Simulated assay, not measured.
Amino acid sequence: MFSPEGPTARELAVQALSSVERGYDLLAPKFDHTPYRTPDAVLDAVATALAAMGPFDSGLDLCCGTGAGTDVLARVCRGSVTGVDFSAGMLAVARERAAPAGPAVSWVRADARALPFTSAFDLVVSFGAFGHFLPRELPGLFGQVHSVLRPGGCFAFPLVAPPRPGSAGYWALLGFDTAMRVRNALWRPPFVMYYRTCRLGDVRRELTRAGFRVELYPLPRFGRRSDGSPRVRLVAARRAPVPAGAGGPAQPAAGSVNS
């Protein structure tokens, strides 16, 4: 699970008893050596799928952490790339690891629930961040993303199918979430990190309510479950283009792909 370069048990305990922001500030120097970082296989699969939808111009990595998602944006965006996170420690590591030969990346410290942009991006991506938001926060979060996308822009993120009830994975995630709820009931400040709150049906409903048109694409390299459903999907939520006659000609979405 953790490489030798990863955090020690004591460091993880200190992080778990901190706030989310402080915890990630502490974890940042060793974050890329933990299982919390999105695997390269997922990043590559998303980049391949987005390349078929693009090209895009400007891109935003929401809750960018140490910048793994900005590498995906650099592969599919022709223009500017921006990473935003509320952890100064994670942003510091992201700046250090940014590839010198790639496109220039702007790093912005901000809360995803109050983004300091207005209709500035054609593509927004996010990797592994939604467990840090309570279900009641999703409408506001998705509303913020909708507001920073240009008409026709796309909000894309991978979503892993939940483990089957009764499986080892199911009990592991249930146990983790239960432990976090007990911790947050007994200790302040809270550390919001849950694995079972981001369900496809809920996400799709809230994206639609925020004004997105939602499309789902299987990521083939991860295969399918016994019932034929994809193990990992790419959720692609598009902001509607400007209709013809409403301030100019209709703007097509930034590329398309057949389902």
Rank of each mutant, 00 (worst) to 15 (best):
S87V: 05
G248Q: 01
G166I: 10
R150D: 08
Y170F: 15
S147Q: 08
D122S: 13
F176V: 09
R205L: 12
A250L: 08
S256W: 07
V182S: 08
R75F: 01
G89C: 10
P4H: 08
L207T: 04
V72R: 00
D85L: 04
G153P: 09
V124F: 07
A104E: 14
W171E: 12
C198F: 13
P139F: 10
F191A: 14
F117M: 04
R78H: 08
A88E: 11
V105E: 02
C63Y: 00
S256Y: 06
T82C: 06
R183D: 14
P39V: 12
L200G: 01
P218T: 13
V72L: 00
R188G: 11
P29H: 09
R199M: 03
V108F: 01
A253L: 09
G67R: 03
G140K: 07
F31W: 06
A244Y: 05
V160I: 14
W171K: 15
S106F: 01
F133H: 13
P55M: 00
L17D: 15
P230K: 05
A244F: 06
H132V: 10
L43Q: 05
F2W: 12
M1Y: 11
F2G: 04
W187R: 15
G83P: 01
E96W: 03
V160T: 15
V242S: 08
A13P: 06
D61F: 02
P29D: 10
P243V: 11
A253I: 06
R204T: 12
G140C: 07
V235R: 06
A101C: 06
